[in-house]
């Protein structure tokens, strides 16, 4: 017998894995139907197809936080647009190339905020003069800037949510801690824009710490979907030699999220380990009733077909259906 929600990680791991996943999947299928939406985000390449939702960095590869899981490596894979003119040029070109949209992201200042203010007019121009959807990867934000971004015309908001004060400080080097993170969530919730929190399983150097608290933080808001990220220890970062969380751990978290927020679509992010870990994680996530997977493993697609799921592919961020 499973409770309606699982409040602590100890409770989640106490349950038999099969029973937990079965309960979550049955609930997921009853509400969301038997379907799996798959995504090719950014400009990533998947089986010869390229994504049409590039990630753009408003700070090029600069970031004051230099988080332990990233060390600015992720920024280097983005299209740089470090000033408003560059952003206009980049967006004009991406639109002409037929992209569906852009994810505006970038490095943060010491307080965890991105430099949105100088880009507001350009964002408005992009919305008025191109067909691009605009998603933003928020960072820490105040209520006034959130409203200004809504007025500029952004379409949706992605935000990383961490539930452990220690993790925020040690991994993100963010002085504002949980208070700043909760304030940012509140600021976005007030805008009524589609809000897509991202929770990284194992962000605390591969360990579970604060994920359930993060889940509770996002469950307080009307979110459009939840994206589950899995720590992928990158080379040349302080986490390079840390083991990622086990696939079973990821699946348990997805099941807990499903039971906590039955109506919210849950996506497995492109940010997760490769190879056999990916195969196992994706297959277990399907057993937990995940609704969306970015860059799914072939083995998971086979399993999804065996489960009788209707499969659709989208060349966008997993936070949006094109």
């Amino acid at each position: 017998m499973l409770p309606d929600s699982l409040q602590s990680w100890d409770t989640v791991v106490a349950f038999d894995l099969g029973s937990l996943l079965d309960a979550a999947r049955e609930l997921s299928w009853a509400i969301h139907g038997r379907r799996l939406d798959c995504f090719i985000p950014g400009r990533m390449v998947y089986m010869g197809e390229r994504g049409e939702y590039p990630m753009v960095s408003l700070t090029a590869d600069a970031c004051a936080l230099n988080c332990d899981h990233c060390s600015r490596k992720i920024l280097k894979s983005m299209v740089p647009a470090p000033d408003p003119d560059a952003l206009k040029t980049v967006c004009r070109q991406l639109d002409a190339e037929g992209n569906a949209g852009v994810l505006l992201s970038g490095g943060a200042n010491g307080a965890g905020a991105l430099p949105w203010e100088p880009f507001l007019e350009t964002i408005r121009w992009v919305k008025e003069n191109t067909g691009l959807k605009i998603s933003i990867h928020s960072g820490i934000i105040d209520a006034e800037m959130a409203l200004q971004l809504r007025e500029a015309g952004i379409d949706q908001v992605l935000i990383d949510v961490v539930g452990s004060e220690e993790t925020i400080r040690r991994v993100y080097h963010l002085p504002g801690g949980l208070t700043a993170m909760k304030a940012s969530l509140n600021a976005w919730a007030a805008t009524k824009l589609p809000l897509i929190p991202h929770i990284a399983v194992g962000l605390h150097y591969g360990r579970i710490q604060g994920e359930m608290e993060a889940l509770e933080m996002v469950a307080q808001h009307a979110i459009a979907s939840l994206v589950v990220v899995v720590l992928n220890p990158l080379r040349e970062t302080p986490m390079a030699d840390r083991p990622p969380p086990a696939p079973e751990t990821v699946a348990r978290f997805i099941a807990a999220a499903r039971l906590r927020m039955p109506t919210v679509p849950i996506a497995l992010s492109c940010g997760r380990p490769s190879g056999l870990h990916r195969v196992e994680t994706d297959c277990l996530a399907l057993r937990a009733g995940v609704n969306r997977i970015a860059m799914p493993a072939q083995g998971a697609l086979e399993q999804a077909r065996e489960m009788g799921l209707a499969i659709a592919f989208h060349k966008t961020c997993c936070s949006r259906i094109s």
Partner: peptide, 9 residues
């Protein structure tokens, strides 16, 4: 072959 942004044959 798999990279952080590439999964292909």
């Amino acid at each position: 072959i798999e990279t952080s942004k590439w999964v292909d044959r």
